[in-house]
Design a binder for these strands. Structure first.
Lengths: 237, 237
DNA sequence: TGTACTTATTAACTTAAGTTAAAGCCGTTT
DNA sequence: AAACGGCTTTAACTTAAGTTAATAAGTACA
């Protein structure tokens, strides 16, 4: 049984409701790093919540290039899309070993039926993801290489800290420089150059898949990063 | 009373439900072109559905630049954000004269209470907007100027056609070249150059705020545009 | 019907980021 | 510990897009 209680999606629900949900059959699965949870173009019948590990979500273009849409962290809700009957429009690939709770469409349908509060939680979560997606639009559309990278680092740093009560300046960083490039709309080579420059200015340290924020204020100023309001799920309206 | 029945958000609801909703007090307002529905940083207590006209939604950066997030077309749902208690994180400005249905937070709260199906409609709509936002991330992050512009034109063309049973190759185009620039992450001057090039290749005509698609297949190929599945609201799960 | 303002157009020049290519590094496997 | 593969780093060169600036064309309204 999946430890449902700690997931974002269920965090603010009254506990008798959570108990009810735990009684639905939900499967828990584990994936090794680099494997796919699902691939763009597949039919999908499940939705997932990420329980542990990092997942990257991306779209692939006809010309073979890739745009990473989002890094999913523990608690995030995956594979929810407007048209559940169409093939899924992006891929989800594990960056580290990951575990998920699986909700077959049928279970969700039943849960919605019996506990309509859930739908408003889903709306809430989708709206929060939307807001993140808008931030990244601004980031890619209107900032230069250093600013984009600083923003990416701070966003991940913050999302991880709020998720995990994690309070160091160092976070795990499982992505490669190519992943960074495909996230912020640059090339691998330019990411490397920019990284060097941030390093030489003493703003960050990034090595062996660990990122350290050395000068938070300067980095935040550079990124145009304003600490997001601490966003716990809450009654929608 | 707002002609609620035709709005996206209510389209698939059973008609006795729509009747119930029409009984809530909803105000209808009209705004002239170039005025604001709301501005980034304001507290907001209403949500809106756009009934007629075009609205642009954008974020403003500290350095004064602007990233347009989305053009809202008739039927779209506005000002819904994850944290309804925080100041709104973007601005909404009318591009043409617009009319809206206003739903005070209190009305929505009541409606949700009595008709939980509404929440899943909201989730559906938010997920659809999310998908559009992802498309634009790909567009800005991984395409060159001509491709981005071709994509923007085709997206608007399609969204307008599905909305309005509009079946010409010419659509109204109320934005300036500066607006285009702030949508696809380019400068005004480069937009003008790119526009000329598309015009010289006989792909489009754009003048006096009207856009004509002259060579759809070539434009679609260039943009990497695949016609989105006709996305009518539908039962969520 | 002219004046004022906003939008569009073009040219000349600069620069940030892309491309290609070659080494070097690191972790894993045998 | 050698050999392999995937990452990272750097350099040299190219180019797409940015900048600045000047002119022209629309549009609104007094």
């Amino acid at each position: 049984m999946c430890p449902v209680r700690q997931l974002n999606i269920f965090k603010q629900l009254p506990s008798e409701l959570v108990n009810a949900i735990e009684n639905y059959r939900t499967e828990q699965i584990t994936l090794p790093a680099k494997t796919f949870l699902y691939k763009q173009g597949e039919e999908h019948t499940n939705t997932y919540t990420l329980f542990s590990g990092w997942v990257m979500l991306y779209k692939t273009l006809d010309n073979g290039s890739r745009q990473i849409l989002r890094y999913a962290l523990p608690g995030d809700f995956l594979s929810f899309q407007a048209d559940l009957n169409s093939p899924i429009n992006h891929s989800a690939q594990a960056l580290t070993e990951c575990s998920f709770c699986v909700f077959p469409r049928q279970s969700i349908l039943q849960m919605f039926d019996q506990h309509p509060e859930l739908a408003s939680q889903i709306a809430w979560i989708t709206a929060r993801d939307m807001s993140l997606s808008h931030e990244y639009l601004v980031n890619i559309g209107r900032k230069n290489a250093k600013e984009r990278m600083a923003y990416l680092f701070l966003d991940l740093y913050h999302r991880l800290c709020t998720q995990m009560e994690h309070q160091e300046q160092t976070i795990p960083f499982p992505m490669t420089q190519e992943d960074i490039a495909d996230t912020i709309g640059l090339t691998l080579v330019h990411v490397n150059r920019t990284l060097r420059s941030l390093r030489e200015e003493g703003l960050i340290r990034l090595a062996h898949h660990r990122l350290t924020i050395l000068d938070y204020p300067t980095l935040a100023e550079l990124a145009g990063f304003t600490r997001p309001a601490d966003s716990q799920p809450q009654p929608l309206l």
